[in-house]
């Protein structure tokens, strides 16, 4: 199944080296998707623990504290590195 990935906030540099979609086995979970993304990062880098995670419009926590859930084909995985500019 195909999962669309959207990077926002301070994740722009990340988005330039990461795919905009993932092909995962049917029934794969959110944790599997995040693990697949992490495996694509350069060595010694990781998605920020505070990075917000949402699946098709529903908040799922952060990369550091995420409630795992099954994904469906066509889901949009949104990764927002928190912003605080005032």
């Amino acid at each position: 199944m195909k999962i669309h990935i959207v990077y926002a906030g301070r994740n722009y540099p990340l988005s330039q080296q990461m795919p905009s979609a993932l092909d995962l086995p049917a029934g794969a979970s959110l944790a599997a998707a995040l693990a697949a993304l992490t495996s694509l990062l350069e060595p010694d880098t990781a998605l920020p623990a505070s990075c917000l995670v949402a699946v098709s419009g529903t908040h799922a926590g952060t990369v550091g504290r995420c409630v795992d859930r099954p994904l469906r084909d066509g889901d949009e995985l949104l990764l927002i590195a928190p912003v605080a500019g005032g």
Binding site: V6, Y12, G57, H59, L78, I80
Partner: peptide, 19 residues
């Protein structure tokens, strides 16, 4: 959470979950 990504022309809302 209302995300306005003007760089990518994207407008998204996320229903936040209390912990």
């Amino acid at each position: 959470l209302w995300l306005i990504d003007a760089y990518q022309g994207r407008n998204t809302q996320v229903q936040l979950q209390a912990r």
